[in-house]
Simulated assay, not measured.
Amino acid sequence: MGLYKRGQTWWISFSYNGRQVRQSTETDDKKLAEKIYHKVLTEVAEGKWFERKQRTETFAEMMNRYMQEHSAVKKRSTIRDQASLKHLLPFFGTFALREIHPSHISRYKADRLTAKAAPGTLNRELALMKHAFTLAIKEWGWAKDNPVKMVSMEKEAPHKDRWLTYGEEKRLLKVCPEWFKDIVVFAVDTGCRRGEILSLFWRHVDLQKEVAVIFGKKTSQWRGVPLTHRLRDILASKQAPQKVQSLRDSTVFCNATGLAVNVHELRWAFETVLQKVGISDFRFHDLRHTFATRLAQNGVDLFTIRRLLGHRPYVTRSGTHIITWRVFEGASTCSTPVWIT
């Protein structure tokens, strides 16, 4: 009794893992019902039926789990992910994961581009969706394929590398809140990445030896960063109101309320001061470019710059070190190439 009728609708019956399964074909056309029946038998024989038919999790359920287990843990990406979901959920929310195909994602891309979404914004939304599908496949067993991988990302205009002139730096520091000014100076004088600065603890700062020990998450290595005289003075003044021992387990850089600075607060503060002084097309990461470019302008060799920036060279199987670098536009006095990311 593989194919039978209930009322006007055809049903199919088959055996799966020792149990009898009955399901509706949702059609009153016998020929179509027969095709559906034979297709199901083929999927059962190939071991695909359970994966495709038994998983009913929706896109909304997948993203809810993703936000709870991954985005919330990272914290820094939560706000960005929430912004992406404002566009993803209305389109994909009610879809079962097995129902989402590359054609749906292409339709979503077209709609977002019609709505004047920037290519970078759209790429971040697709990247979030792709990562969630990857977890649903590898860790949760909710899906078999990642449809986002089959859709191309949008081409983004490359960012024009910039570095801060001494005049721009003076104007910038003049309008910075005191707590943020210290961060900007530290970035310019050490070339540290944003995350390295925000995660710096007092126990890793030695003012007597004029050095800060930085852990590079990108390289998973520790490195010593020399402190300039103005940095030493700034850090000493920040230590002065309290005993060093009480500061030991505290982050070096805090906001006006005494709490550790998070990446979103830093981004908002940086965009605000840039707007006040009229500096455009400039990122916080460009302060790192500024550090490297100034060293090069003063004749510091490439390998010293690389070590100060905390880079690790890429080594091929043959043991050859490959160095990548570029000279920043406008650094006309720069006689040494600068290697930086």
Rank of each mutant, 00 (worst) to 15 (best):
P226N: 01
Q275Y: 02
E169V: 04
R203F: 09
P226D: 01
T228P: 14
L200H: 10
G191F: 11
L207S: 00
K174C: 08
L231E: 08
K209Y: 12
D206H: 12
Q208C: 05
W202Y: 04
K217T: 15
F270E: 05
S237A: 15
V188N: 08
A260N: 13
A269V: 04
T219Q: 08
V205S: 10
F186T: 10
G258Y: 01
C192W: 03
Q221S: 02
L227F: 01
D161C: 00
K218E: 12
D233C: 00
I234D: 12
E168Y: 05
Q242M: 05
K218W: 08
Q221W: 01
G224S: 11
T165S: 11
V213L: 11
N262I: 10
H229F: 05
R267A: 15
D161R: 08
R267T: 15
T257K: 06
S220L: 14
L266V: 00
V205W: 03
C254W: 00
W163F: 00
H204I: 05
T272K: 08
V185N: 06
C192K: 06
R230F: 07
L172A: 06
W202H: 02
L198I: 10
R232I: 13
K276I: 09
R230C: 13
Q208V: 14
L266I: 03
C176R: 06
V184I: 04
V213I: 14
C192T: 01
Q221P: 00
S237M: 10
E265M: 13
D161I: 06
I197A: 07
C176K: 07
A212F: 00
F215W: 09
L173E: 06
G195M: 14
L173M: 05
V213Q: 00
D233M: 06
L164G: 08
E168N: 04
A240V: 07
F201D: 14
P177E: 02
K181F: 01
P241S: 07
R162M: 04
G224A: 03
V225F: 04
A212R: 03
W179Q: 03
W202C: 03
Q239A: 10
R194N: 07
R267H: 12
K170D: 14
W222E: 14
G216N: 08
Q245P: 09
V263E: 14
F186S: 11
I183D: 03
F180K: 04
W222K: 08
V211H: 07
A260Q: 04
F253N: 01
K170E: 14
V188T: 07
I197N: 09
V261D: 05
L231G: 12
K209S: 10
T165N: 08
C192R: 09
T228G: 09
L207K: 09
V244F: 08
C176P: 11
L173R: 01
T190P: 14
V205I: 15
T257G: 03
S199P: 12
F180C: 02
I214L: 01
G224N: 11
D161A: 05
L247G: 13
